[in-house]
């Protein structure tokens, strides 16, 4: 175990040469490559950070825009909802008015139609009653019946009320008054004289009352007799009874119409109450 000083020197030189070689060809390039890569990585990280920051800013901006958009949308939606609600209310109110008008006009039309029908029914009923009565009376018409009718008329004349007598005398005031006698059948002279006598009795209270009779046959009277003059009239015929019947039917129809009116008004009130509660 000896120390060879030449070898020591040579090895020292070798080692120093190796240090230089490795620094030049190994450590230098490797460390430079590492540094470059770290720089590049740092650069990429910085860029990524910048991109991230930018993305965060953009995200915040988009979130802000989204919030604004949502708020605006909600506002518009509320506005549209309110507008639609008010429009809907207006349209419903208008529809109610129109419906009421239509209902009213329909009711009026119905009333008119009802009235028309009532009149028509009354007229037709009367016509039928006339026809039936006329046919019955025509079938039963005989001298006895006509005589009985005449007697009835005479009684009617004799039993005139004070108002009728007053009106009769008033009609005779004009003097030489013509009294028209309408009858469903032709009167005999005896019957004419009897009528004349009764009229003379009724009008005897006044000396200046003169009248003359004029006869005329009128089949529409339906087995009856009628006297007219200057707006005054007194009669007995089945037509009077039929007129009474017509008046009764008319009154009955009026009552019925009134009940329909009341029922309709009740229904209208109920429907208004239902709308208001809705």
């Amino acid at each position: 175990m000896t120390i060879d000083w030449f070898t020591v020197g040579a090895q020292t030189l070798n080692f120093l040469l190796l240090v230089w070689l490795l620094k030049r060809y190994l450590y230098g390039p490797i460390l430079k490559a590492i540094d470059d890569r770290e720089t590049q990585t740092a650069k990429v990280i910085n860029q990524a950070d910048a991109i991230k920051l930018d993305a965060q800013l953009q995200r915040k901006m988009l979130e802000k825009k989204n919030n604004e958009f949502d708020a605006k949308r909600d506002e518009l939606f509320t506005k549209a909802k309110n507008t639609a609600l008010s429009e809907s209310e207006q349209i419903i109110a208008k529809a109610h008015i129109n419906a009421d008008q239509i209902s009213k006009s329909r009711l009026q039309a119905l009333e008119r139609e009802l009235e028309h029908y009532q009149q028509d029914i009354a007229l037709k009923t009367l016509q039928e009653v006339y026809d039936v009565a006329r046919k019955v009376l025509a079938d039963l018409a005989s001298v006895e019946l006509e005589q009985n009718m005449f007697e009835c008329f005479c009684k009617r004349l004799q039993n005139m009320t004070l108002d009728e007598k007053h009106n009769f005398n008033k009609a005779l005031d004009a003097g030489n008054t013509e009294l028209l006698i309408y009858s469903a059948f032709e009167l005999t002279q005896t019957q004419i004289d009897k009528v004349d006598g009764i009229l003379q009795q009724v009008s005897s209270a006044k000396s200046n009352s003169h009248f003359h009779l004029k006869l005329e046959v009128k089949t529409t009277l339906i087995s009856g007799i009628e006297i007219r003059s200057n707006g005054w009239k007194i009669a007995w015929s089945t037509e009077d009874y039929l007129n009474v019947l017509q008046t009764f039917i008319s009154q009955l129809l009026i009552k019925q119409r009134e009940s329909i009116h009341n029922r309709t008004a009740q229904l209208n009130t109920q429907s208004h109450n239902v709308k208001n509660s809705a």
């Binding site: 020591v8 090895q11 080692f15 120093l16």
Partner: peptide, 14 residues
């Protein structure tokens, strides 16, 4: 070479 005292001595001297 490290089995030589000359080498180890040179390294130690370094």
């Amino acid at each position: 070479p490290t089995g030589s005292l000359s080498t180890t001595l040179s390294l130690a001297l370094c």
